[in-house]
Structures are given as C-alpha cells and as structure tokens.
C-alpha cells in the first residue's frame, strides 16, 4: 500500500527538494528500507549501525510517535501518513 511520507528539511537534499514522497510499505521498518531504495542515503540518516531508529530521529504514524506504537514493526495501512521529524528541544527549560 502507498504511504505519504513527510520529509524534514535536512533530508530534502536526498529527495530532490521534495517535502513529501509516496512509498510502498507494510510497516515502518519496510518503509525505511524502501525509502532507502528510492532515495539512497536515507537509511544511514535515520538508523544507527544496529538498524535502530536514531536517538534524535522521531518517526510519527498519523501523529503518533512510533516509540509509543511498535517501533519499526508498527503496521501501516492505506492512507496512513508518516512524518519524520528531528528531535528538538523545548519551549520550556
């Protein structure tokens, strides 16, 4: 199924400037692999040596952080929106 993925500014060099791309995937892990296939260099940016999502990368499925779902095993369905957002510090302290 086709998933819309929002791409943050630091990664748009890999997508020819596109802020959104369409990717086929069954779950978040596959989505990252398929992103890599379509836009080489993505996986290194998103995942560490062990293949885990990097500490400073947040991946959201329909506005929910995948750390609160099933991480890379989080199942995706048609029409889901995925957003990749660099972690940022707060408006508080």
């Amino acid at each position: 199924m086709t998933i819309q993925v929002r791409i943050p500014t630091p990664l748009r060099r890999l997508t020819d400037g596109a802020d959104e791309v369409s990717i086929e995937a069954e779950n978040v892990g596959a989505l990252i692999d398929n992103l890599e296939a379509a836009h080489a260099g993505m996986k290194d940016r998103l995942c560490d040596d062990k293949g885990d999502i990097r500490r400073f990368v947040n991946v959201y499925v329909n506005d929910e952080d995948v750390r609160f779902l099933k991480g890379k095993s989080t199942i995706l369905k048609e029409g889901d929106e995925v957003s990749i957002v660099p972690a940022i510090a707060g408006g508080a302290l």
Partner: peptide, 11 residues
C-alpha cells in the same frame, strides 16, 4: 539558521 546535523540528525 539550522539546528540539525544533516548526517546524523544530532543537535
């Protein structure tokens, strides 16, 4: 005006 590393997403 940038805040994230392009290579590893670090701050």
């Amino acid at each position: 005006p940038v805040h994230v590393c392009e290579f590893c997403f670090g701050p």
